[in-house]
Design a protein around this nucleic acid. Structure first.
Lengths: 196, 196
DNA sequence: TGCGCAATATACAGACCTGTCTACATCAAC
DNA sequence: GTTGATGTAGACAGGTCTGTATATTGCGCA
């Protein structure tokens, strides 16, 4: 299992201008925000010529969408791998989220952050973020299905509210008792939808 | 009661450069993000000269902090006024939040958004945001106290996780079943901490 | 009347940002 | 060997951003 929640890059080959640009942009965008990082910095830190950049990404917004789509795939892959390693009890979700939040460069959910920053200001961003959350909810529902049956989708929907709350509160530095509260809330969800 | 959750400005007098600047900045910063609005636009839309602006706010970051502090006071005042009008049952919180989320210019929590956008990038922003959340949690605990007694602080802490989840999910456009899920989750919290 | 203060209008400096352009190097395929 | 795709290096245009400087106006007040 990887050290970080995020699965490794699609293209592990550090050669290739496009892969290097995406890798650098992912790190910088997540850390400093979409508008907090300029093209020049991404070009400099990825060791690529400006013309190479604009050959692969006609505009900065294209890079932003590619970053979000890549992160969507990698984050979900990493999350799914960790989920699959545990029986379908929602306490596992709290463990995974809090291990993620404890990573040194943790800055919350990249998709919440992107919507919070630019809203509808960059075409496609809101749609990608929504798709990410939908896929995560679906993933949870499928994982819960063996235990909760046809009620799994409803449980996943409720769990998502708690999941978002845990992500945001840990981002705001409220790390103290999140493990207890999160575990307890999700146990309630599980109990509700697990019983007949 | 006001039409919006936000209480009216501290200085309802639209005369005075400082008040007009803050009013304009509040609207624009909330709507387009801190880095998405330039000084020039704020100056133009508030009908103020550039020198007047810099007399009141030595730098843009000072305006940003003033905006967040003002919003902190006004939002909490508006929320408290609505809470006070209802008996301390957590379903009221869901009603208030969803009425807020239904306002036409709703874009989530200004403090979550500010932290999501700039993180530690602007001095003081993270601290103001944390103070806002702490005060909100305290307010909830005090409101719940007549009903839940000494367990009110714990209930408020759990409720905050759900509150953040509801705010973020409604911001991401997931408005469908939030009322049901939110009400149900908070009823669980209430039941847990209300029984002996 | 004249002083002082707050505000206005506007020009400007210097940095940074996105995106384009030219010129050249490498290398594989046909 | 020529062609085309991919890459590097760096200058440049045009816009926007923050923040400063200059000159002027309106007004209360002594």
């Amino acid at each position: 299992m990887t050290d970080t929640l995020l699965a490794p890059p699609d293209d592990p080959n550090p050669e290739g201008a496009r892969a290097r640009i995406l890798e650098t942009a992912s790190r910088l965008f997540y850390q400093h925000g979409l508008r907090g990082v300029g093209i020049d910095r991404i070009i400099a830190e990825s060791g690529v010529a400006k013309m190479s950049f604009y050959r692969h990404f006609p505009a900065k917004d294209d890079l932003i969408r590619a970053y979000l789509e890549g992160r969507h795939r990698r984050w979900l892959a990493g999350f799914q791998a960790r989920l699959a390693a545990r029986p379908p009890e929602l306490a596992a979700v709290v463990d995974i989220l809090l291990a993620w939040a404890a990573e040194p460069d943790y800055r919350g959910c990249a998709f919440i952050n992107a919507v919070a920053e630019v809203g509808e200001g960059i075409a496609g961003v809101a749609a990608i973020a929504r798709a990410h959350k939908d896929d995560l909810q679906r993933l949870l529902a499928e994982w819960l299905a063996p235990r909760l049956g046809e009620r799994a989708p409803m449980a996943a929907r409720c769990a998502m509210v708690v999941v978002e709350g845990l992500i945001v509160r840990s981002q705001m530095g409220e790390g103290e008792l999140l493990a207890n509260d999160g575990r307890w809330l999700l146990q309630r969800v599980e109990a509700e939808f697990g019983t007949e």
